[in-house]
Amino acid sequence: MKRQIPLLIVIILGFIFVIHVFVPHKASADFYDWYQTWIKAISPFMVLLGIMSLFMVHSTKIKRKVPNWQYSVITLASLIGTGAVGFIWGTQAGTPFMWLFKNVQMPMGATMFSLLAFYIASAAYKAFRARSAEATVLLIAAIIVMLGQVPIGIKISKLIPETSNWILNVPNLAAKRGIAMGVGLGMTATSLKILLGIERTYMGGGK
């Protein structure tokens, strides 16, 4: 029973939502609105779950003094501190919370994001080796596109930006669409497996 009831809920609701896609009727639209309010009601509890998990993992680490437990102290203190600041002074513009957001979170996020430039360079360096015929094509295409995006490309030859555009618009788009189609089918298959109860890992365990 412990397995069947959730499975039944999944199957019934799953099919209702499939039907919802094909039925534009008012009744169907109203049902969807109703479901949306449920989602809104459920999500706050989930936040609590996440915070509890974070708390438990890190408090255990501190208690057991596992290596690097100091980081956990910082994590927990930041969690409590930011939360408290938000609760005490609110989250409007000008509050300490927003100050933290602007001066701590945003620059840190931007820093992480800008690391991408470095990582792309090193990844490109390592990956682009003319190991085989295909790899050579990839290598040449990459160089053309890179040159096509910067002023120097046109200086070398007018053909470079044009070829770069062609590569982006034709082979690149074709491959993208091919993958997208496979993904679409894969998604449909996975959803169908869940709907039919073939795939149940998401409930824990395979059987």
Binding site: S53, L54, M56, V57, M108, G109, M112, G205, G206
Partner: peptide, 30 residues
């Protein structure tokens, strides 16, 4: 739940550590 169940299936419920599946943050780069 999935990791817990996998340990049960493998016959090693004792090795399951709840702390091994954990939430970090919703912020992308954090």
């Amino acid at each position: 739940e999935i990791v817990k169940e996998a340990h049960y299936e493998a016959g090693r419920p004792d090795t399951y550590d709840k702390g091994s599946v954990f939430f970090i943050t919703t912020t992308q780069f954090a």
